[in-house]
Design a binder for these strands. Structure first.
Lengths: 341, 341
DNA sequence: ATCATCCTTGCATTCGAAGTCATTTTCTAT
DNA sequence: ATAGAAAATGACTTCGAATGCAAGGATGAT
């Protein structure tokens, strides 16, 4: 009869009113009880917490978000998760944000430039901020600005107005690699670039090319795609372009370096590093595998993600704060994939 | 003077009331305008859409979630994102859910068993469902059930009551691998397991061990950790345990297989597959690299994620639906890391 | 005992959109 | 032109928690 006592669809969905009734207090008291530093008498708090436990009450973050205008959500927008470098970044970011009481709304793009489609959803969810590892147009950045949603770019920089960003220094990294290669007495240089729409790809290639020219060396550049197979494909192209004389290869990331190393050894019977030196960029874990030990630049992922999260939270809490660009030097990892000076 | 016209803090944060005022209609009309199949006169809709565009209006998903009791959020709980297999799964899941108009709340665990800490947050955000690739206790599963939040486990099964799940068949996969190895005339078998708290790890090892025994073969088992270095470490242990006679190695995943292959070749000078056959599990991309070409079982990730998403959505839309376990057969990928029969 | 002060507590309102219901407008058929 | 049906629209309430405000209670000083 009195089935109303325990409506099954209700279990686990208790509201602050239910808890209030159970504890014999007002809804306000319940709300205060879950808020840090609010004024509640110890005895009342006890009663409320007991009632909350009994009813399995958890504050509705959606309702909280509506009234406080703080969703406690941060959007993470990442282009290609399969890039081997990003999973580590994503895990780090997520755990750091979690530790700060912030939840992650994940947007994964099929292509670096599919951002527009997800922005719509980003606005709808009233995220407090965003960390973006994808290419944003100036208008898209302006949209964030208009809405007062702080953004931190990861390994990207804004093309127009200044935006906060965290980057690993491509220039110093590539300079270090090129310098080492040049000292190692190489003669025919090749570069494998990233895909055309990749910011870091272009930046790294440009830096390497420039340094080579500064040192009076010429080079051939072929386009890669940041993945393993494109390392192989690009190596074939370069071998053709250099009549097989290629002896130093600079790859825009480790994955292509690995592809090229395998291809050189297996498809061309070339010894690495005796006949061909190969260097990469990123410091992903396969780069350290025994078979490769790629000479590369390791990005300081922990420090970079830490900075990204800190910068974002600062800007969420102090909306006026001006943008900040932080550049982190990578560490030269001397493997055995290159003869160095 | 009339600065009220454009309150800066307001831009991009227009509400349905603002749009209504601008268009000279009621808030209800605006709401209906954004709802599929509601009754709005074409001319009114025009006016409203124009106003919305002008004010940069996007419906507040938080408010929608509160009133409709549908957050359109799904929690994805993944233990170790760095596992090389999961990034692909995560990207697939995210994109498929996005395509269905569902947003992903990501929870990444440092250890497979840290689930409790995140569940709290899962309840608070009133997610419509969850996809979990981590170990859940029966009580945790019961909590989902109590709250009416559908769950689909990914490569895990419920330990107590039935739960929906999507798995790649470890048993048939390992049987196929073992059968092939046995036919390939191997004599001393070793197995590298996963970490103790990994469900699939235990399942795969148990299946392999059972099959070996069925075929009258003995084997040594050492514990691994699913990562590259533990493949090396475990191989050393096995070489010691077998006096260097090991000639067939079954690894609970590809990453350890790769670690073992590298270690065998480089640390022990053993030829793979001539002197030692190595098989893995998963079909991650490095397994197909020229240097390894691991003989393994490839999980049908696309079909599995598709099923997981479909099953979850079904259960969100029809809360009564009973749990369903779907098992997918992996595909035997015949590489060159093992002599087969 | 008396009053000022601080701490607790509840009432009422608010956030932004959805949906019910009643009302008005438009359309259809005669 | 007109009754009747159908479509379009608006007023109002609702979801669940936070918070300003005012009232009540406890505490301390005199």
């Amino acid at each position: 009869m009195a089935a109303k006592k325990q409506p099954e669809a209700n279990s686990g969905r208790a509201t602050s009113y239910d808890v209030a009734r159970q504890a014999g207090v007002s809804q306000s008291a319940v709300s205060r009880c879950f808020k840090q530093g609010a004024s509640v008498a110890p005895r009342t708090r006890e009663k409320i917490l007991a009632a909350a436990r009994e009813l399995n009450y958890y504050p509705n973050a959606i309702a909280q978000g509506l009234i406080t205008r703080r969703s406690n959500l941060v959007a993470i927008i990442i282009s290609n998760l399969t890039n081997l470098y990003y999973p580590e970044v994503l895990a780090e970011l997520t755990q750091r944000l979690s530790a700060q009481g912030i939840r992650v709304l994940l947007f994964s793009l099929a292509a670096e430039s599919d951002v527009d489609e997800v922005l719509d959803q980003v606005w709808r969810y009233r995220v407090d901020g965003a960390i973006v590892a994808a290419r944003l147009h100036p208008e898209q950045l302006a949209a964030f600005d208009d809405r007062g949603v702080p953004v931190v770019l990861y390994n990207r920089v804004g093309e127009g107005d200044p935006v906060s960003s965290v980057c690993c220094d491509s220039v110093s990294g590539e300079y270090a690699l090129v310098d080492a290669l040049v000292e190692g007495d190489h003669h025919v240089f090749g570069i494998i670039s990233g895909p055309a729409d990749s910011y870091v790809g272009e930046e790294r290639v440009e830096a390497a090319r420039r340094r080579l020219h500064q040192l009076g060396r010429d080079c051939q550049i072929v386009r890669g795609n940041f993945d393993y197979v494109s390392g192989d494909a690009a190596l074939r192209d370069l071998m053709r372009l250099t009549d097989g004389k290629l002896d130093a290869l600079i790859c825009a990331n480790d994955l292509m370096a690995i592809g090229a190393i395998d291809s050189a050894r297996i498809n061309f019977g070339i010894e690495v590093p005796q006949d061909l030196s190969v260097v990469g960029f990123d410091g992903v874990s396969p780069a350290t595998w025994l078979a490769y030990q790629v000479t590369t630049i390791r990005q300081p992922v922990r420090r970079m993600t830490e900075a990204a999260v800190a910068m974002l939270i600062e800007r969420i809490e102090q909306p006026g704060l001006s943008p900040e660009q932080r550049l982190f030097a990578g560490e030269l990892l001397t493997g055995s994939s290159a003869r160095l000076g």
